[in-house]
Simulated scan of single mutants.
Amino acid sequence: MFLFLKSLSRSVHHEEQQEESDQKYLKKIDHGMSLTVWRKSLVISCNGFTVIDSQGNLVYRVDNYIGHPEELTLMDASGKSLLTMRRRKKLAMVDSWFVYEGDRDHENCRTTTTTKKRPVFCVKKHINILQSNSNVLAHVSYYHERSSKRSAYTVEGSYMNRSCKVLDEWRRVVAEIRRKEAAKTGASFGVDVFVLVVEPGFDPGFAMALVLLLDQMFS
Rank of each mutant, 00 (worst) to 15 (best):
L3N: 13
L5R: 05
K6G: 02
K6D: 02
K6N: 05
R10Y: 01
V12L: 04
H13Y: 05
H13D: 06
H14V: 00
Q17V: 00
Q18E: 11
Q18Y: 03
D22V: 01
D30L: 08
M33P: 04
V43W: 05
I44L: 05
S45N: 12
C46S: 15
N47Y: 07
G48H: 13
F49Y: 15
F49K: 15
F49E: 11
F49P: 14
G56S: 09
V62R: 02
G67T: 01
P69G: 06
E70H: 12
D76Q: 11
D76I: 07
A77K: 11
A77N: 14
K80S: 11
R86K: 13
R87M: 09
R87N: 06
M93R: 15
Y100Q: 12
Y100S: 09
G102A: 12
D103K: 14
R104V: 01
R104W: 06
H106C: 10
C109V: 00
R110E: 11
T112D: 03
T114H: 11
T115R: 09
K116W: 04
R118P: 00
C122N: 10
C122V: 14
C122K: 08
K124E: 15
H126V: 00
I127W: 08
I127A: 06
N128Q: 03
N128R: 04
L130V: 11
H139Y: 12
S141R: 08
S141E: 08
Y142S: 04
E145L: 07
S148K: 05
Y153I: 03
Y153W: 07
T154L: 01
T154Y: 04
V155K: 01
E156D: 01
Y159R: 11
R162P: 10
D168H: 14
D168T: 15
E169P: 00
V174R: 00
A175K: 07
A175R: 08
I177L: 14
R178T: 00
K180C: 10
A182S: 11
A183I: 01
K184F: 09
T185R: 07
G186F: 05
F189D: 06
G190I: 08
D192W: 07
V197T: 15
V198F: 13
E199Y: 13
P200I: 11
P200L: 14
D203A: 13
P204I: 03
F206A: 09
A207F: 10
M208N: 13
L210A: 12
V211N: 12
V211C: 15
L213G: 02
Q216L: 15
F218P: 14
